[in-house]
């Protein structure tokens, strides 16, 4: 098992193997996403309080979940890279950061689009919104640090330390922000637990969540492959890949 995993983690094997997997991820993402959107936008019943505008949650909630999930993946990959100095995990951490930041951004934008008809304002300093915003800032920090350091390996190790510090901090930030908000004002926020009870709303939500995970896997692999080619451009296997692609 271990040997098999270590073999897989070698850049060349990963390149071949991920090239075969990407179409599978892409197609299953597409199917699940279409199914989830159809179920969510057409089949799922209208909410008695929020009308049709609640349907944005089928994008909003999975995007918010992904933004947290990817940060943890990034920190774990970064930690593995720090300990075992494996190139692949460094690349996975570096490639994950922009994707996670995009999901955090998507969650913020969809949340604000939802907030306009619901709360009558684009933005509210609600605990959850604010901690999502801070998560977005943390991603930006990791990306900026990654870009600022010239040597890719040093950059990967430095941003791994930052990501790990962020992981320790995220729960502290999250709870302090929630605590800050509840002291200032009562919860005027409509909780997501309301609509998610109904099974017809839960199914599309879960479909979309799985679809987003598959999308992440596909995009991560694509960007990791590009990064890999760039970093290993002087090695013989990359030369081989390029020459076969040309011919």
């Amino acid at each position: 098992m271990w040997k098999w995993l270590i073999k897989l983690a070698s850049p060349q094997r990963f390149y071949e193997f991920s090239g075969k997997l990407i179409p599978w991820f892409n197609w299953s993402f597409l199917i699940l996403c279409v199914a989830g959107l159809y179920y969510g936008l057409i089949v799922a019943p209208m909410d008695y309080q929020q009308g049709d505008s609640y349907r944005i949650m089928f994008v909003h909630v999975p995007a918010a979940w992904m933004s947290m999930f990817i940060y943890i993946v990034m920190a774990i990959a970064g930690g593995v890279g720090l300990i075992w100095r494996t190139k692949l995990s460094e690349i996975i951490a570096a490639s994950s950061a922009p994707i996670g930041a995009s999901f955090a951004f998507l969650a913020l934008v969809t949340g604000s689009l939802w907030g306009k008809p619901m709360w009558g304002t684009w933005w509210i300093w609600d605990g959850r919104l604010t901690s999502e915003l801070i998560l977005f800032f943390l991603y930006i920090g990791v990306i900026a640090l990654n870009n600022a350091i010239e040597d890719p390996r040093n950059a990967a190790r430095a941003s791994a330390v930052l990501a790990l510090v962020g992981v320790v901090n995220i729960p502290i930030i999250h709870y302090s922000v929630e605590w800050w908000n509840t002291l200032h004002q009562g919860t005027t926020v409509m909780k997501m637990s309301g609509p998610s009870i109904h099974i017809d709303m839960l199914i599309p939500l879960l479909l979309m969540a799985v679809a987003f995970k598959l999308y992440y896997a596909a995009v991560l692999m694509m960007s990791a492959r590009t990064e890999l080619l760039e970093r290993e451009r002087n090695s013989s296997w990359v030369q081989e890949v390029i020459s076969t692609a040309r011919s």
């Binding site: 801070i134 800032f137 900026a144 640090l145 901090n169 930030i173 302090s176 922000v177 605590w179």
Partner: peptide, 15 residues
């Protein structure tokens, strides 16, 4: 860059 890295981590203390 330093402010970008450090300021989000200062939030709990501020709150």
């Amino acid at each position: 860059l330093l402010s970008l890295l450090v300021l989000p981590l200062y939030i709990p203390v501020l709150i």
